[in-house]
């Protein structure tokens, strides 16, 4: 089960700068750790995260083992039109996750 939390303001004025935040529960395995039997735990990180605003990509993060466990990102977008802000991500094992939230933009 992938757990993520996103923070998108429910409303904004057109042209306003809005802050977006996302946190994903993921170990971001470096590939350098061993389990209690001395076996290497394979590298597994969320390697790509996309943010789409009404379908078009506005932000992208390519990450690796240098990003802390349970990756957290905070950035901005400009409110244009009402619609959806969608996040999607995939890790080295191919496991995908997504979360989205609506935003109402007023004049």
């Amino acid at each position: 089960m992938t757990v993520a939390r996103i923070l998108v303001p429910p409303t904004a004025k057109r042209g306003e700068l809005v802050e977006l935040r996302i946190a994903i529960q993921h170990p971001m395995e470096t590939g350098f750790r061993m389990d209690n039997n001395g076996k290497v735990i394979p590298k597994n990180t969320v390697h790509t995260l996309l943010c789409r605003y009404n379908g078009s990509e506005v932000f992208r993060a390519e990450m690796g083992s240098g990003i802390a466990a349970n990756p957290y990102l905070q950035f901005y977008i400009i409110a244009q039109d009402s619609g959806n802000i969608e996040f999607s991500w995939v890790d080295d094992r191919g496991e995908k996750g997504a979360a989205s939230s609506p935003i109402t933009v007023t004049a």
């Binding site: 690796g64 240098g66 977008i77 400009i78 244009q80």
Partner: peptide, 25 residues
């Protein structure tokens, strides 16, 4: 770090401000 590239972030004019907050190892 063993892997020198921590992250590669793609911004666009739609982001309005080129600011990123994150947590690294």
């Amino acid at each position: 770090n063993s892997r020198p590239v921590i992250a590669k972030i793609g911004f666009s004019p739609a982001t309005g401000r080129a600011t990123l907050t994150t947590r690294i190892r």
